[in-house]
Design a protein around this nucleic acid. Sequence first.
DNA 1: ACTCTGATTAGCGCAAAAGCTAATTAGCAG
DNA 2: CTGCTAATTAGCTTTTGCGCTAATCAGAGT
Lengths: 98, 98
Amino acid sequence: MENSVFKALAHPARRQLLTLLRQGPRLAGDLAAAFEASWPTMSRHLAVLKDADLITADRQGNQILYRVNPSVLEDAASALLGLIGKDTGDDEQKEAAE
Amino acid sequence: MENSVFKALAHPARRQLLTLLRQGPRLAGDLAAAFEASWPTMSRHLAVLKDADLITADRQGNQILYRVNPSVLEDAASALLGLIGKDTGDDEQKEAAE
DNA sequence: ACTCTGATTAGCGCAAAAGCTAATTAGCAG
DNA sequence: CTGCTAATTAGCTTTTGCGCTAATCAGAGT
């Protein structure tokens, strides 16, 4: 599960999508328009992000509104910091014993 | 540059290598031995991590000692938190203006 | 039902990544 | 120089990822 998150983050376009989404929810079309790649290509990137649970999609009549899912990003960041023994606020009682 | 970091983190085996390295420097052979995959395969994973500057390699006579490079991991984590507008301690003077 | 716009899915081709075995390099010991 | 161990590099095959165009699905309006 965590794996799909990091895989999703591996592509620059997808990280760029997240930075756009960071400023607030956006319609699929608006997101796609912000890139040079074709619309279907961007749709696929959005699907990858959704699969990783990094974003959520809501139909608004004719169009689809995308929102970033902060908690999953936070978890990923925590995982990275955990890799270097940085306390991320999660309880790591083993740390205290060392 | 940042891209190679996230791409390096995309593979489970490489993240696993980092968790092993988190406990301290380790020899290439010891790292490779901890996985099912063949030695050359693990060597290649280590090369990818080194390329991304996530680890450093030092020859110790006959063998090679790998060390994790915490600052690059921290940067990556910060980048993720930045994606959701979390202040990471870096100066982001633009934030203050909003 | 027809059509227009918004968005995804299908199918294809190509490039990059991942894995293996075999071959090679690097250093040390004799 | 030979032999031994540690590790990487080469060469190859298979799998995965990316991007395109064309086709399809979904909803709203007429």
